[in-house]
Structures are given as structure tokens and as C-alpha cells.
Amino acid sequence: MKLQNFFKLLFFLLFFLLSLNSVAKESTEDRVKKLTLELRCMTCQNQSVSDSDSDFAKDISKIVEEKFKDGLSEKEIKIFLTDRYGEYILLKPYFNSKNLLLWLFPFVLVIASMFVFFKKIKKK
């Protein structure tokens, strides 16, 4: 096997594995943990709701758990929380026009540099 093919295979494998993440099933407890890790404890300093044991964090965790039990999706809970507390509560900001630069910048850079790099190699 050639080195290139080997690497191609590897990347394909990784990509496949990463996409598996989206179909995995989780319990409510896991979902609460996952979501609260993405929420800022507004009364602490740079701590997530999940990591904190402040009253605010406990309240939010309770709300999140109840909402999940009511059948709301992660997205709906996020919207509910940002309506109340503002987008500041999300440690992972929404993908919207305001945050376009934030989200696209790294991946555009990766793609652009890959493009340039392969062009250089092709030229040889």
C-alpha cells in the first residue's frame, strides 16, 4: 500500500467515525450533562453550569432537566434560555450572521491552505 492511499483511508475512517456521533442515543442524564457543559454559569467566573455548584447553576440544571423530560429538544431549550438570559449564557455561540466570521474563519483557513498546498505539490 502506498503512503498516500494509507492516509486517504485514515481520513475517511476518521470522518466516518465523527459522523457516527450524530446518531448515537443518549439518556436524559447524558443530555443534561452535555447541554449544561455548554452553558455559562452567569454568577461565576468563566465556569460552566455543569462544573459549578452555585445556586444559579443548580437552578439552570433543574430547568434543563425538566425541559428535556417535557420532550423539548436541545435547540428549543437553548432558545428558551437565551430569551431569558441573552446569548451570553451560551459558551458555544449560535451559528448566525453575527458569528459567521467566528465559525467560518478556521475552516476557510484550513480549506484555503490545503488548496494552496496541493497546488504547490501538483506543480512539481
Binding site: R40, G86, L90, L91
Partner: peptide, 19 residues
């Protein structure tokens, strides 16, 4: 925009790690 947003761990985990 005078709005406050946070960019925390989850953002960095989902950008830096794949890169």
C-alpha cells in the same frame, strides 16, 4: 453590536480539535 456573547470551551473543542 453592544451585545454580549461568550466563546468558551465547547467552541474551541469543536474547532481546534478537528484542525
Amino acid at each position: 453590536t453592544n451585545k454580549r456573547i461568550s466563546v468558551g470551551g465547547p467552541y474551541f473543542n469543536s474547532t481546534v480539535l478537528p484542525i
